[in-house]
Amino acid sequence: MNLPKIASISKKIVVACVGLFLLVFLLVHMGINLCLLRPDGGAWYIAASNFMGTNYIIKVFEVVLFAALIAHIIITVALQIQNWKARPVRYHQPSKSKTSTASKTMIWTGGLVFVFLVLHFVNFYFVKMGLVEGKYMIQTEELFSTELQNEYMAATQGKLSEEEVALFQSKMEKVNAIAVKAEAEGLSSNDMKWIMNLSAEDVKPLEGIVEGVEPDFYNMSYELFGNKVYSIIYLLLFVALAFHLIHAMQSAFQTLGLNHNKYNKFIEGFSWIYAIIIVLGFATVPVYIMCFV
């Protein structure tokens, strides 16, 4: 098979554009994460993540994001393999050329960011996909759904057979169990819209009865970052992200040909500031939860 030859610069332009898109994504993600710190019982955070989970434009961008991430990884790894092959015999003496550490370690810091992503996916995204058990929450008004209400009406009017009544009663028992648990343990959110912090065992019986069971990322985050070892691993991987980002933006500008004596210092400075803001923003959440909760 003859693959069309793609020029090195074309590949790099794709990596740069995708990288800039990922930088913007990180800012949005960080903004939502910071909502976790509001002392509102998660109202803002739930509203934001609910918007991200349901909005159709966001759903389209979710696909774009994954495609972008995969393209970024595949192309950079392919380029890196070519780069290693371009020097089959290495120097005996380590390079003493004046270069930045961040720029020389992109593939390694990128690898660490990938490790972080795997960890992050197992902890959060896989729960959403139902691959891993986490904590769950239910919209309060969904608990006693219209369907159940109709069944209730039918039952009181004697329109149901004995078997159907028995089935309805078993459903109601399960729903009641959650309502009772929520009341007893204070699981309702401040605005009473959600019943939160439910385990997989709590939610399992509700399958097919209650719609709108969603992963409770709010309580999952608090539990996860309450674990010090885990938080520290997260923070260490953020250091790798910081190194990756410091070089990322200025490098993308250079690859896109956006280099100008007047603006180079600004671009370099902005890359640093952006990287620091992103990483500090993300790091604030585990640090806060680890130290103050």
Binding site: K5, A7, S8, Q82, N83, A86, K98, S103, H247, Q250
Partner: peptide, 14 residues
């Protein structure tokens, strides 16, 4: 340049 087996620039500026 690509054909001759040179590597790809990663903007390290050595």
């Amino acid at each position: 340049m690509d054909e001759l087996g040179f590597g790809n620039c990663t903007n390290t500026y050595a």
